[in-house]
Design a protein around this nucleic acid. Structure first.
Lengths: 189, 189
DNA sequence: AGAACCACTTGACATAAATCAAGAAAATGT
DNA sequence: ACATTTTCTTGATTTATGTCAAGTGGTTCT
């Protein structure tokens, strides 16, 4: 759980005993490529920290899969509104590669929130950050070209393109696989 | 505050004294067309229920205004992550028409959350709903055409087009004013 | 009321991106 | 290791949308 520990301690000053309590609320689970972490229509009762691997969050619209987000190591992944508010979740979350996850259950999470102020603080940070990310994503969809979105993503996480089927990346950028292929070619020259 | 009362009671069963306490935490404020409810760079310490009028939430990118959302009567408007987590807000919120708002301050809000379980419940609903809205908006930007987004908006709120400058609506849909003009023409025939 | 401004529309044209179709490359299963 | 399937690339073409420019109608201000 070293990576998770780092992720938390990077964000907030925290004493050894507290971090240990927090870490002990997580358990580790391995997913094989293709396994589902969550399916549409279910309640989401778990939040996962991605130790290694990639997962994608997608919806099926008019029979087509639309990838909303791809999570990679060092990030948390969950269907946030369902996890927090127990509304019906409509996302699918699936492992794109073999994954190692550190998972916390909903009840453990809320217990921790009450008992460990530092976890509450960290969780608040996570929530605010997630919300800001969504807003940023919308903003970029509203006024940037495919080219610009590709460039930004490539700069932010070049490794992604080596580990994840490009069709998912294309979908996440709101473009077709063909267009992504051409942008990549341009980028290489 | 009748409209606000209705908005809350529509969502949850609540006794008379509780709703009165909640309503008394709000105060009313009028905005003139063009007035700002919030400016980028500030902390957001207020959440507003729109009794009458329209407001827009926008950011300035590369010198251009990008409208993120337009709020109309019966909705709440605030820079949510800033209001909840006191992170720096980067949205501008401006009255598009004269507006009547019912406002609650951040401290009052958190006091209410502790003292009135029904308000906490209602707030949870608001948060979950907001989050789901953002997700939906991203999804629609990722896989629908201008035409489809226009149709959906026109169906959801035809009145909007009579009260709000079309350039803001265009921006919110991620298209140019010219394209919106042509879609409207098509729609009329 | 008139001047100035602003918002919207329209047309001509340019461009980005989607679609369709074929083939190459890579990954997977046996 | 081979056959099969999936994923990616490439080219030709079409389509949707953006850009530029001009003109119209409406609103606001003094």
């Amino acid at each position: 759980m070293d990576s998770l520990k780092q992720c938390i301690t990077k964000e907030t000053q925290i004493d050894t005993s507290s971090i240990e309590v927090i870490l002990s609320s997580f358990y580790t689970r391995d997913l094989k490529k293709g396994d589902f972490f969550l399916r549409a229509g279910k309640l989401c009762t778990q939040m996962a920290f991605i130790d290694t691997g990639y997962l994608r969050m997608f919806d099926i619209v008019d029979g087509k899969e639309v990838t909303f987000w791809i999570g990679s190591s060092g990030k948390f992944i969950t269907s946030l509104s369902s996890f927090v508010f127990q509304t019906t979740n409509f996302w699918n979350i699936q492992a794109i590669t073999d994954c190692k996850l550190h998972i916390i259950d909903r009840e453990s999470h809320f217990t921790l929130c009450k008992q460990q102020p530092k976890w509450l603080e960290f969780d608040n940070h996570l929530l605010a950050h997630s919300f800001a990310l969504l807003e940023q994503k919308i903003l970029s969809q509203l006024h940037t070209s495919s080219q610009q979105r590709f460039d930004a993503l490539f700069k932010a996480d070049p490794q992604l393109f080596n580990h994840v089927p490009l069709q998912y990346i294309a979908s996440m950028l709101g473009i077709t696989p063909e267009t992504l292929s051409r942008l990549r070619k341009k980028n290489a020259n």
